[in-house]
């Protein structure tokens, strides 16, 4: 489901229309398959969790469920504009059953793109972002849309290791 495109797929597959939720962090435009997005909420009171990796902002109460919230900017090591006043949104994304919130600066309208417009990520760094988190890129007029690989972003093993390192 979350595999948006596979390069080997047939022509039919390439003509498929994909709907994305676009969001902006800093000046970059990102996208995530709409099917993965459970809901989008205005920022909620976040309870920090002591001793957790720095990009984990904490947990929020989403109608009785406790959901971890990750600051996507910190997770992706994007530059933080110190002066920018952050009036943020939280994308609630279901990543293989793990419902997780991601803090983004703003959310755009739903974007429709053809599957074959998505190109594999270039090897080099895109917008100061390591290609390992990128599923593909796509031209949107003059802008470049970056499709994020949320499975990679929420690598639980990695988070566990980070936690260990930080503690020591």
């Amino acid at each position: 489901m979350e595999q948006i495109v596979s390069q080997e797929a047939g022509q039919l597959e390439k003509d498929r229309l994909i709907q994305l939720v676009g969001f902006i962090i800093g000046k970059e435009l990102f996208g995530v398959n709409i099917l993965m997005v459970q809901e989008i909420i205005r920022s909620a009171p976040i309870t920090p969790i002591p001793d957790s990796p720095v990009f984990i902002e904490g947990v929020i109460n989403l109608r009785g469920s406790i959901i971890p919230v990750i600051d996507l900017r910190k997770r992706l090591n994007l530059v933080q504009d110190e002066n920018e006043k952050r009036d943020t949104w939280i994308l609630i994304i279901n990543i293989e059953g793990r419902v997780t919130g991601f803090i983004v600066d703003s959310v755009t309208e739903v974007l429709k793109i053809l599957a074959n417009e998505i190109k594999p990520p270039p090897d080099m760094v895109v917008a100061g972002l390591k290609s390992q988190y990128i599923q593909g890129v796509c031209k949107m007029g003059t802008k470049l849309l970056i499709l994020l690989d949320f499975n990679r972003i929420l690598m639980v093993e990695e988070i566990r290791k980070l936690k260990k390192i930080e503690r020591n």
């Binding site: 009171p45 969790i49 997780t100």
Partner: peptide, 23 residues
Amino acid sequence: PLADYLQENSGFSGATILGDGRI
């Protein structure tokens, strides 16, 4: 419960929601 990766070895056994909705 907290998400598994948050709860393991964190010193917390879970979370609770207080009367005012805070965690």
